[in-house]
């Protein structure tokens, strides 16, 4: 209890800093683009944290789930002429439905982490390949321009930044609220011991399906909003190697299971990513190495580990100076 309460302050500070960010860098297109992609990654990470960190379901199709809503809503709006908000709602619902379906099937068929991982990875590859293959509709590898938001305020960086930030804050509030609801209780019981949780009357199916569907819908909403802001969609933007790996690294850095971790992780990873840009493809190697080191050495994430270290260090100093 105390641990979660103590997260409220750092969270508030972080959010305030993010609100103030455009007043500092709002003039720079480059920095604002970066800030926006940071928010999107943070949103993905909070969503994935709900699915993986809280209920232990390894979805390896984060990019695809974001892409379903993004392509879905853009195609609905541009091709079928559906009003944009409705189109986005439908797209997000599709992502949520697919994610919930994965969870439901996984629980029902008692798929372990390995099978769920493979099924979702396969889905991710199917999705990317269908995008490439369905050239007539999706523009294939070249991508797709979004007409629905052409010339709208959403295309401007600063307003879009605030929209995405509002969504991110919404995610964080939702996350905290869930933690306090029956679901949070179910999550913790599940984490301690799934079998015991089931015996103790936790509705495992419902807890997992809700987490899977909600997390996927959150991925979808972030993906769709970013797409309509950016005005351009392409398969690489939702590729496994592009999105999933980055989110895994963010979660590895920020820590699995906490609320703030994904946000801090996103900030750190976005900054590091920019610094490493000159390395080109070697960044993949750095990310790979980071994943390995973090998951082997600090299973709770780098930031919590560093904080623990700091606390221990502080405690020692406190003892040293009576």
């Amino acid at each position: 209890m105390a641990a979660r309460r103590s997260e409220a302050w750092p969270l508030a500070v972080t959010v305030t800093a993010l609100v103030g960010l455009p007043t500092l860098v709002g003039g720079s297109r480059y920095l604002m683009t970066l800030a926006i992609s940071m928010l999107v990654v943070a949103g993905y990470a909070v969503a994935f944290n709900l699915v993986f960190g809280r209920t232990g379901q390894l979805f390896l199709c984060l990019g695809a789930l974001a892409g379903v809503a993004a392509y879905g809503s853009v195609l609905l709006a541009d091709v079928a002429g559906v009003p944009l908000p409705a189109a986005i709602a439908v797209g997000v619902a599709c992502s949520g439905g697919i994610g919930g379906l994965f969870s439901w099937v996984a629980v029902r068929r008692r798929l372990g982490v390995i099978f769920l991982g493979i099924v979702t990875l396969a889905f991710s590859l199917v999705f990317t390949n269908l995008l490439v293959g369905g050239r007539a509709l999706t523009g294939g590898e070249t991508g797709l321009l979004v007409d629905a938001t052409a010339g709208s305020w959403l295309r401007d960086r600063v307003p879009a930044y605030y929209v995405l930030l509002a969504v991110l804050v919404g995610y964080l509030l939702l996350d905290r609220w869930l933690e306090r609801s029956w679901l949070g209780w179910a999550f913790r019981a599940l984490k301690d011991d799934p079998v015991a949780a089931e015996l103790a009357g936790v509705d495992v199916v419902r807890a997992k399906v809700v987490a899977g569907a909600l997390g996927s819908a959150m991925l979808g909403l972030m993906g769709a909003l970013f797409a309509v802001h950016d005005g351009f969609l392409s398969p690489t933007g939702f590729d496994f190697g592009e999105i999933d790996v980055r989110v895994l690294v963010v979660l590895a850095v920020g820590g699995v299971g906490s609320s703030l971790g994904p946000v801090v992780g996103a900030v750190v990873v976005t900054a590091v990513d920019e610094l490493l840009r000159p390395l080109g493809q070697l960044r993949l190697t750095v990310y790979g190495a980071l994943l390995i080191v973090v998951f082997l050495r600090f299973r709770q994430g780098l930031v919590p580990a560093a904080r623990g270290l700091g606390r221990r260090f502080g405690a020692r100093r406190a003892r040293a100076t009576p």
Binding site: L58, T285, G288, I292
Partner: peptide, 18 residues
């Protein structure tokens, strides 16, 4: 299983990058 997936995924990206 889970940590083998994550660790070897990291290894895969490390090798790919190189």
């Amino acid at each position: 299983v889970l940590s083998s997936l994550l660790v070897t995924l990291g290894l895969a990206f490390a090798i790919d990058g190189l």
